[in-house]
C-alpha cells in the first residue's frame, strides 16, 4: 500500500508507540506517520506553531490518533481546541486509549471525536486493531477536504 497521506500519532508511551509503528509497518503505512508525544506538541503540530511553525501548510493529516492520558495538555482538551478552531474544525480524530471508562467515551463523542477505539489488552489484537485503523482512515475513509 502506498498512499500519500499522513497519520499523526499522539502517544506518550514509547512502547505503545513502537508497537503501533510496527503494526503500521506491517501494513506498509509506517512512512506516513508523524509522532508527537504530548498534547501541546500535538496542538503546535496541527496549528503550525512553536517547533512546527515551518511545517508545510498543505500537509493536513488524514487522521489524528489521539490518546487521552497525555502530559501537559490532555487528549480531550486537544480535541476541544481543534473543534473550536475553524482551521481544524473538521479534522478527523480517533481517540485511541487504554481507558474503557464510559465517562471518557461519552466526553470524547461530545467533544466531536470521529471514533473511539480502546487499545486491546491482547497485543495480537492490538496490532490488528491499529492496522485496521490505519487502512480504514487512509484508504477507505473519504476526508472532508481532498
Amino acid at each position: 500500500m502506498n498512499i500519500n497521506k499522513t497519520i499523526l500519532l499522539v502517544e506518550d508511551n514509547s512502547q505503545d508507540e513502537k508497537l503501533i509503528l510496527r503494526a503500521l509497518r506491517k501494513v506498509n503505512l509506517a512512512n506516513q506517520v508523524d509522532v508527537v508525544r504530548d498534547g501541546q506538541q500535538a496542538l503546535d503540530y496541527l496549528f503550525r506553531e512553536g517547533e512546527f511553525a515551518g511545517r508545510n501548510g498543505d500537509d493536513v493529516p488524514a487522521i489524528v490518533l489521539l490518546d487521552i492520558g497525555l502530559p501537559r495538555v490532555s487528549g480531550l482538551e486537544v480535541l476541544k481546541r481543534l473543534r473550536n478552531d475553524p482551521r481544524t474544525r473538521l479534522q478527523p480524530v480517533v481517540i485511541l486509549t487504554s481507558s474503557d471508562e464510559e465517562r471518557d467515551r461519552l466526553a470524547s463523542y461530545e467533544d466531536g471525536a470521529n471514533s473511539f477505539v480502546r487499545k486491546p489488552l491482547d497485543f495480537t489484537e492490538f496490532a490488528e486493531t491499529v492496522a485496521h485503523l490505519g487502512i480504514y482512515w487512509l484508504a477507505v475513509n473519504k476526508p472532508p477536504q481532498e
Binding site: 512502547q15 505503545d16 513502537k18
Partner: peptide, 11 residues
C-alpha cells in the same frame, strides 16, 4: 498495568 503488559507480550 495494561500498557507495560501489552509491551511485554507485544514485543
Amino acid at each position: 498495568l495494561r500498557a507495560p503488559l501489552r509491551a511485554m507480550g507485544g514485543f
